[in-house]
Design a protein around this nucleic acid. Sequence first.
DNA 1: TATTGTTATACTCTATAACTATA
DNA 2: TATAGTTATAGAGTATAACAATA
Lengths: 145, 145
Amino acid sequence: MTESELPMALRATYLALHRRTDARFAPYGVTADQFVLLATLARRGTPTQREIARHMPSDPSTVRAMLALLEERGLVQRDRHPTDLRARTATLTTAGKRKFQQLMKAGEPIRAEMVDSLQPNEVEMLVKLLRKVAASLNTERVSVG
Amino acid sequence: MTESELPMALRATYLALHRRTDARFAPYGVTADQFVLLATLARRGTPTQREIARHMPSDPSTVRAMLALLEERGLVQRDRHPTDLRARTATLTTAGKRKFQQLMKAGEPIRAEMVDSLQPNEVEMLVKLLRKVAASLNTERVSVG
DNA sequence: TATTGTTATACTCTATAACTATA
DNA sequence: TATAGTTATAGAGTATAACAATA
């Protein structure tokens, strides 16, 4: 097994997931990445844009662009933070919550398919290994030039 | 463990890899995706654009755009296929081969970091599990509406 | 001084549809 | 008829830098 098989396998699997999800969500007018943003709001309630960016993870200006798009479509509402006047919070509108529920349901077969392709203990193992790798990639490193 | 942890862990890990790789390759003026294309040419020699698209995997028009970009920069050369006059082949130029070698070397610490974060048998297991999931996601399915 | 967000800007990747040339 | 590629076009995500407002 060569060293590049891991990155390539990771890429191939993720891209397959991403394309399947995009195709599945297209009739709802939402991309896979937008779904992740909606899911972040569904889970976290009323985070600031900064918190969203950290959580996705993504860049603040990317998050801003995505939120502006979703706000235009009535799925998301942005407000001033109650105490920190620099910050803006975002939250799902009623339409946004409904859309998110539809997407969760529409995506269910894809998630089931992934999980069903493995034994239950293998799913657990895969998640554990992925998190170990992610942690190592996200570790702050001293630049060696 | 909920069902969505697997897709989310997969996404988080891949994005971490992608961002690290993009940052690492930026001084060379090449993106992570362009590197995958160069690696495809390095491995397969003189494939047609169609073959590249299948292998990456990507869309023929995306591949065309990427190849045009890389050709402009002198890393790739495109020619007519010797027997199928519809087809175009692509291959690395001398500069492209050199650039690919540099990138392989520059990317080595990232690949090593991923592999070193796991036991050897865990690396093998992870690749195996990723491929099983990818296979299930790529299976042709009958549309159920 | 540091942080949050905005704006302007640019690049890359993605993908569909209509088209030409060839098999 | 089907396939390989091109072109036009559009949308989406990414990210940097300069900036204003606030902490």
